[in-house]
C-alpha cells in the first residue's frame, strides 16, 4: 500500500537563509537550510521541498548552491522551485540533484512549460504549485502568481485540470489564508483540488499547527501528502512524532 507522506517545506531568501512566512508575508528567520535538512533527514521526513520566495531574485540561482550541498547529506527526494521560468531551468535543477521541480507563476504565462518538462523527465518530475485564497466577493477560491501578488483570471478547478492535462505529476496546493497561521489546513480547498486533480497526487500546504490538524486533513480530504513549515520550525515537533501520532489514527507511513 502506498504510504501517506509528510514533507517539511523550507522557504529560502537570496541570502541563503531559511524564513517562515505569515500569509505569504512577514518573514521570520528560522535558520540554515543545510543544517535543518540534515536534521529532517535524521527525522525520516519523506521528502523535502525548497522554495525560493525572494521577491527580488526570481531565478533558480538562489537554489543551486543549496541543492549541491543538501544532496550530499540527504538521501531522500528533493523538490525545488521558485523562479523556474523555462524547461531549461528545470533541467539545470534536475542535473544538480533535484528529483522534482516545482513550477507556479510560469504555468499561467507559458502553460507548455509543464508538458515540456514532463516530456523530457517524465510526469513525476514536475509539480505544479498553486497559491490560492478564498475570495469573499465571488465566494470561490482564486489563484494567484508572483508569490501571491497577482490574481490570475482562471478558476482554481480549471487551473488544476489544465495542469493535469499538461502532464503535472503532482499538484502542490498552498493556502495563502492559512500560511503560517497554524490554525489548521483548509479542508474545503484541499477537497476541491483533490477532486479536480483526479488520479494525480495532491500535496497540501498551509495551516498545520498541530498533529490533529494533519490527521483531519488526511482523513477528511483524501490528500496524498501534507507539507508543513511552521509546525516543525516553531515548537518541539518533528516528522517522527507526527507519524507516531497519525499512525494511531489508521494512517500508514513508511516502514524503515
Amino acid at each position: 500500500m502506498l504510504k501517506k507522506r509528510i514533507i517539511p517545506v523550507q522557504l529560502l531568501l537570496a541570502s541563503g537563509r531559511l524564513v517562515k512566512t505569515l500569509r505569504f508575508d512577514s518573514w521570520r528567520d528560522v535558520g540554515d537550510p543545510v543544517a535543518s535538512s540534515r536534521v529532517y533527514n535524521a527525522q525520516l521526513a519523506d521528502e523535502l521541498v525548497f522554495l525560493n520566495i525572494d521577491r527580488e531574485r526570481r531565478t533558480i540561482d538562489v537554489l543551486l548552491p543549496l541543492l549541491e550541498r543538501v544532496s550530499e547529506v540527504c538521501f531522500m527526494p528533493l523538490a525545488l522551485g521558485g523562479g523556474i521560468r523555462s524547461a531549461r531551468d528545470a533541467e539545470v535543477l534536475i542535473r544538480h540533484g533535484a528529483d522534482k521541480v516545482i513550477v507556479n507563476s510560469e504555468v499561467y504565462r507559458t502553460p507548455e512549460i509543464v508538458s515540456e518538462i514532463a516530456r523530457t523527465f517524465g510526469n513525476q518530475a514536475v509539480i505544479v504549485s498553486i497559491d490560492a485564497r478564498w475570495d469573499e466577493a465571488s465566494l470561490s477560491y482564486v489563484v494567484s502568481s508572483n508569490c501571491g501578488r497577482t490574481t490570475e483570471p482562471i478558476s482554481l478547478r480549471k487551473h488544476v485540470a489544465r495542469a493535469v492535462e499538461l502532464g503535472a505529476g503532482e499538484i502542490f496546493i498552498n493556502s495563502i489564508d492559512r500560511d503560517g497561521t497554524m490554525t489548521g489546513y483548509d479542508g474545503a480547498l484541499i477537497r476541491e483540488v483533490v477532486a479536480a486533480a483526479g488520479t494525480v497526487p495532491v500535496i497540501a500546504c498551509g495551516g498545520a499547527g498541530t498533529y490533529e490538524h494533519m490527521r483531519d486533513a488526511f482523513v477528511e480530504t483524501g490528500v496524498n501528502a501534507l507539507a508543513c513549515g511552521s509546525l516543525f520550525n516553531f515548537g518541539d515537533n518533528n516528522p517522527i512524532r507526527a507519524k507516531a501520532f497519525l499512525s494511531n489514527h489508521g494512517l500508514s507511513f513508511k516502514v524503515v
Partner: peptide
Amino acid sequence: DPMRVPTIPHVGWNE
C-alpha cells in the same frame, strides 16, 4: 492502467 491504480505516477513510499 488508469482503471487499476488510484494515481499515476505511482509516487511515494511503498513496501
